[in-house]
């Protein structure tokens, strides 16, 4: 987002939004992309139709099976201050599963995860730690070794 396109007050609020302080930053290296198994983890409050929607600043997460069809993915993010038209027209704007599948088919990446995950991005990140560690365990059990994080 080019913050200069927003009203000054909103740009300032977004740029000064409280973020957690981390003492260091971890760093994991790995295989070439053509051998990586890639998952999407989104903070867009995505839910599979029929699963419980995010009702507020929930700290848990939802699983999105790789076989989910575009018609069955909903966005229940609590914020209404971001564009939803893009997602309504094309889910890849937020959840680029079709693009990852194409990259796997053309062998740019090794494969695509069996299951993807979504959190509610408006939640205090410190409350997501347990859920994130649980998701990490599930991703590793699926042999995922690369995660594309998408926010809204």
């Amino acid at each position: 987002m080019r913050l200069e396109k927003l009203p000054a007050e909103m740009a300032l609020r977004l740029s000064e939004l409280e973020c957690p302080d981390f003492k260091g930053t971890p760093w994991v290296e790995g295989k070439p992309l053509s051998q990586r198994r890639v998952a999407i983890v989104s903070s867009a409050g995505l839910v599979v139709r029929g699963d419980p929607v995010f009702r507020g600043r929930d700290a848990d997460y939802r699983a999105i099976p790789g076989a989910t069809q575009a018609n069955d993915l909903l966005c229940s993010h609590i914020s209404i201050n971001f564009d939803r038209n893009g997602f309504q027209e094309d889910w890849n704007v937020v959840f680029p599963l079709d693009r990852l599948s194409e990259l796997a088919a053309e062998r740019t990446i090794g494969s695509v995860a069996t299951t993807h995950y979504s959190f509610m991005g408006a939640t205090d990140p410190m409350q997501m730690v347990d859920g994130a560690r649980e998701v990490a365990g599930k991703l590793k059990a699926d042999n995922v070794d690369a995660v594309l994080l998408t926010s809204v």
Partner: peptide, 15 residues
């Protein structure tokens, strides 16, 4: 979202 990068990478996943 950036915080999730910390948590997942700490668990050994490149993000």
């Amino acid at each position: 979202m950036s915080a999730l990068g910390h948590y997942l990478e700490e668990e050994g996943l490149a993000t």
